[in-house]
Amino acid sequence: MTKTFTQDDVVRYVYEETSPEENLLIEDAMMSEPELMTFFLEALELRALMNKIERQPRISTVQTILNYSKHHPANPPARLRQS
């Protein structure tokens, strides 16, 4: 029996949660079903776009974190510390 692939399968495919065997079948399904292919392309584009909206914290926030670690009470005495 031939398995029918859905948009949920395409979501798993876009997020690389499908097996190599499933990949071939899903790719075949997308080639023969334009709506599935359209959904795939849109999901792929959104995934790429979402990767682009990463934000950066302020430098001072990062520095506070590094200082906390540097002056942590559990640190060994400076002379024993590896650099």
């Binding site: 950066q56 990062v62 590094l66 540097k70 640190n75 024993l80 650099s83």
Partner: peptide, 16 residues
């Protein structure tokens, strides 16, 4: 093992 530069690298790598 006490290498703070290694921690700084981790923070830089994953902060965003």
């Amino acid at each position: 093992r006490g290498n703070e530069k290694a921690f700084a690298k981790l923070v830089q790598r994953h902060k965003s």
